[in-house]
Design a protein around this nucleic acid. Structure first.
Lengths: 207, 207
DNA sequence: TAACTTATTAAACATTGTTTAATTTGTCAA
DNA sequence: TTGACAAATTAAACAATGTTTAATAAGTTA
């Protein structure tokens, strides 16, 4: 059977990534297995190990790809003339849309990989997304310094991610107004209102 | 070898749960495997299946147990005379302390189980924790109605959880002021300040 | 003491990630 | 053209896992 040069390494990489997406799109709960991925691309397992160090490496690269697309969507959705509050809301909605329309893909992203800090591309795009949020925050609250902005962006984005995590894994979306979108909406506007007008320090110092 | 009645079902359950905690306490990255759990309790795998439906069921019961202890800690930490803002901060610190002191246990909690809504005990204690937060929020902002309070509690708690998730899995705790505690602190005080004084609705309606 | 019940185990099975040795295929020098 | 080398691809093996099953040992009771 052994074909040769039917596909280049790059093409194999693409085939593999597409196969993974195919699997999780068909069934968000499906286990992504080396054999199923290989079968999806018309090869056998061995070929996978020619292109990726292991399964985790492959899934990490898929995550990186997904985040890059998300970043793309975000860039496209942002209108420079829009007010920063609305912009941040739109950014969050891009994220929620991914989780809602492609739950399998989102679970791939949310799954904490055992091999962290191993993928430079991924780190870079995460930073880029944070920068997007930071830019809007800076326009929203010009008096805050860059460290405050950086912290706020990470706190806010982690929070939105947390809402996604909890609302998909649980236990508490039996009421409509507890869904991810409603919670995110509340979170953003409440948080931003505090960020603009409130004092970041506690009114009374906690012990 | 086969002993009989050395331990009751209840005792076996306890042994199993203790064994799991032992494993993740020794190494937060250790895989919890049926065989390792069984070995830790001085039995073989078969016995596990006498007490639990499967591994997931066991891990779910461990999570339930952990959440009940967390709830206990929270109840103990809350001082009725303290101001609500400080109380909410203390509640969050209980959660963060678990994640920091017992990262393995926390990962057990954070891991989204494939079998959800399958454990009534777990659902109950999650609700109880939310109620704790709601109580403080209600005292903080007496003008808000109960639906707003409920939403805020869930948004805020999901956010804290999200900070935990992101800060343990990543990528962005190379700077000290990005650690979970600092982010949580910022989040809570900013959010609460918005919740007390701000308008929940956007200042300008987003599209 | 013998039969019966049941706790416990050992062994089997299927599925997985990963490695290895074999095979097929293309390339290129003689 | 042919034959040897290199590389792509596979099939098969391996170890680790969750789960099931048949055997075995131990307590209980008539």
């Amino acid at each position: 059977m052994a074909r040769r040069n039917d596909h280049s390494r790059e093409q194999l990489r693409d085939l593999a990534i597409r196969s993974v997406l195919n699997i999780v799109d068909r069934d968000e709960n499906a286990k992504v297995t080396t054999r199923s991925v290989a079968q999806g691309m018309g090869y056998t397992v061995g070929t996978l190990y020619l292109v990726f160090r292991n399964l985790d490496d492959l899934l990490l690269q898929v995550s990186s790809e997904l985040l890059q697309r998300l970043y793309s969507d975000m860039r496209f959705a942002v209108k420079d003339e829009a007010d920063p509050q609305a912009t941040i809301f739109v950014l969050a909605m891009c994220y929620l849309a991914l989780a809602e329309q492609y739950p399998g893909r989102w679970r791939l992203l949310a799954r904490g990989s055992s091999t962290v800090g191993d993928n430079d591309e991924l780190d870079k795009v995460v930073e880029a997304i944070f920068t997007l949020v930071e830019t809007s925050l800076a326009r929203l609250a010009p008096t805050r310094n860059s460290k405050e902005i950086a912290i706020a962006a990470r706190a806010l984005w982690s929070a939105i991610h947390g809402i996604c995590v909890v609302s998909t894994s649980s236990h508490l979306h039996h009421r409509a107004y507890f869904d991810a979108k409603a919670l995110t909406r509340t979170l953003i506007y409440t948080y931003l209102s505090g960020f603009m007008f409130g004092n970041i320090e506690p009114l009374t110092q906690p012990s």
